[in-house]
Simulated assay, not measured.
Amino acid sequence: MILAMIVAIDQNNGIGKNGDQLAYISADLKRFKELTTGHTIIMGRKTFEALPKGALPNRRNVVITRQKDYKATGAEVVKSMVEAISLCSDDQKVFVIGGGEVYKAFLHEADELYLTEIHHSFDGVDVFFPEYKSLGWKETFRQDNMIDEKTGLTYSYINLKSFGRFDCV
């Protein structure tokens, strides 16, 4: 299984504010859908509850929560990162989609990181992506100087691979 993380971050690694993402960039939302469709996505309870229409279609949705007897329509509910990994062990590729605590828990296990780097520093950010740059990632793709016409925000796509791991043959 390839464990990938996908996230949009601002210049300070900010990812959320008041239970929502920092910006809605149309092309980034399309990219997220293209990359994750047909795969399993793992998220925390708060991320699941922030989805406007509930479980994302055409993906296996897995929600991690410590809440006893939590029900998530259209999703499988687990209590831990270990349980989530075990549940998805036969999947080819699994995407971790947030939030902050879930990213932190999975960061050292991730094989790939799909970043959308927003070239802006948002005010009032209350959720951050963990520090990742010192962990040994190799850049495999970069697309810079994109502008969202609706918001005027500039951003880059950066794909990274962990080079500290050994792939089993």
Rank of each mutant, 00 (worst) to 15 (best):
L3V: 12
L3G: 07
A4Q: 04
A4L: 08
V7T: 08
A8G: 04
A8H: 03
I9M: 09
N12G: 00
N13S: 06
G14T: 02
I15R: 05
G19W: 02
L22H: 04
L22P: 06
A23C: 13
A23N: 03
Y24K: 06
Y24V: 01
I25R: 10
D28K: 00
F32Q: 00
T36K: 07
T40G: 01
I42T: 09
I42P: 09
G44L: 02
R45Q: 11
K46E: 12
K46H: 07
T47S: 07
F48E: 00
A50T: 07
P52D: 01
A55H: 03
A55F: 02
L56R: 04
P57G: 09
N58A: 14
R59F: 03
R59E: 06
R59D: 09
R60F: 14
N61S: 09
V62T: 10
V62I: 14
V63C: 03
R66S: 14
Q67L: 14
D69W: 00
D69C: 06
Y70R: 09
Y70W: 06
Y70S: 10
T73K: 15
T73C: 05
G74M: 05
G74R: 12
E76Q: 01
V78F: 07
K79G: 15
S80Q: 04
S80G: 12
S80P: 07
M81R: 12
E83M: 03
A84G: 08
I85H: 03
S86G: 04
L87T: 13
L87P: 13
D91W: 02
K93R: 13
K93P: 03
G99C: 10
E101A: 15
V102W: 05
K104N: 15
K104L: 07
K104E: 14
H108G: 03
H108D: 13
E109W: 10
E109T: 15
A110Q: 08
E112I: 01
L113A: 07
Y114E: 13
L115E: 13
E117G: 00
E117Q: 10
E117P: 00
I118N: 02
I118M: 04
I118R: 04
H119M: 04
F122S: 04
D123M: 08
G124E: 14
V125I: 05
V125G: 12
V125M: 05
D126T: 08
V127A: 14
F128G: 00
F129N: 08
E131C: 03
K133M: 11
K133E: 15
G136A: 14
W137T: 04
K138P: 00
K138S: 09
T140N: 05
Q143D: 13
N145W: 07
D148W: 06
D148M: 10
E149I: 15
T151V: 08
T151Y: 12
G152C: 12
G152V: 13
Y155I: 00
S156W: 09
S156A: 12
S156K: 05
I158D: 03
I158V: 15
N159V: 01
L160Q: 09
L160I: 08
S162H: 10
G164I: 00
R165S: 02
F166L: 05
C168F: 05
C168I: 12
C168Y: 05
